[in-house]
Design a protein around this nucleic acid. Sequence first.
DNA 1: AAAAATCAAACAAACGTTTGATGGATTATT
DNA 2: AATAATCCATCAAACGTTTGTTTGATTTTT
Lengths: 191, 191
Amino acid sequence: MTKKGEKIKEIHGVVTRLFARKGYHNTSMREIARRLGMNQSSLYHYFAGKEDILYALINDAMDDALATLEKICGSNLPPHGKLNEVLSFYTNYYAGDQDRLRLLVNEQGNLGEEYRRILIGKERRYVRLIKSILKDLADEGRMKTIPPSVAAFAFFGMVHYTIKWYDKNGPVKSGELADYFLEIFTEGIFI
Amino acid sequence: MTKKGEKIKEIHGVVTRLFARKGYHNTSMREIARRLGMNQSSLYHYFAGKEDILYALINDAMDDALATLEKICGSNLPPHGKLNEVLSFYTNYYAGDQDRLRLLVNEQGNLGEEYRRILIGKERRYVRLIKSILKDLADEGRMKTIPPSVAAFAFFGMVHYTIKWYDKNGPVKSGELADYFLEIFTEGIFI
DNA sequence: AAAAATCAAACAAACGTTTGATGGATTATT
DNA sequence: AATAATCCATCAAACGTTTGTTTGATTTTT
């Protein structure tokens, strides 16, 4: 890794933390620079502007998740095995890297149209992946007649919302959380 | 209703729409005034400041929902009947009044500490209500051994996330959506 | 010596808010 | 009923800050 590459990573780390905890607009370039111990104008040596930093962070987070999800879906596991793997990975991903994913969920609206277009395209791929697994389950006759979109977004909702409440230092480990979500999603809370 | 009261309602409507669609920080007092056809300084005749408008909107939305939820929970329905009612109301509420609830979910972080303290207190009441229903179900032996917090937040997650995807003019009516959510939450998607 | 990294200083624009004044409506006083 | 005093709603203009960004020079590294 080049010297510049490492610095960029360092900046990414600090900015992720700040944007996630205080929000994009409540974090100034001055504060970012101060936390990094550098002059604010030096930031522009690494990034074209504030918005580009946000975009890079969200885009990276999406690419990372997409890569794993597509690998799972491309495997030769049976549908319910894929669902299991996907749900488990996705929950652990969200529970384990909350700051990054807060940006993805909360701050996309602060990007310009062009950037958003790209990210929305990637989001569609997420949804399509989950829906295709649910379709396969339905074809096997293992799933109720619930619109795949509704089921998929119910699942996304459960997982995405963890960034608002889940504490990974609390009593429930993220692996257990994934197990609970899988149980609720597939079999429900009733006995 | 007084003349002033009606004007405040009108302002609330316009601001709700703007804050929900563009975000709090991407909506200036100048734009709010322009959309209302009034001078920006006139807004300060009705509100102490921008932040106070946001607080009023979120607080009202919370109070409305809390009133209904507490009525349901105070009724003499059996636990599963309460769960049914609560889930149904809550889903319809979120699906039917998306702009208002976007503020509740997305923009709370832009409020000062004092305001947030109050809202967090009300949020706790939400969670306590749902958890108490789940506790009752568990005592009846109808619920699996899932931590009530996890189940409650899984439910909140499903419903709150609707503001990001659900289209009430789409193929799924909000009543149906509530039925699907109830089915998924209680019995799961598997047959 | 060339290139990369950092800096202090300043920029123009946008922001939320305040000021001070105006005309019209409402209320109180004659 | 007519007049005076008060309040309400609105306005144009400006205020002081803060914002993201740029400029141009200086230091550090290669």
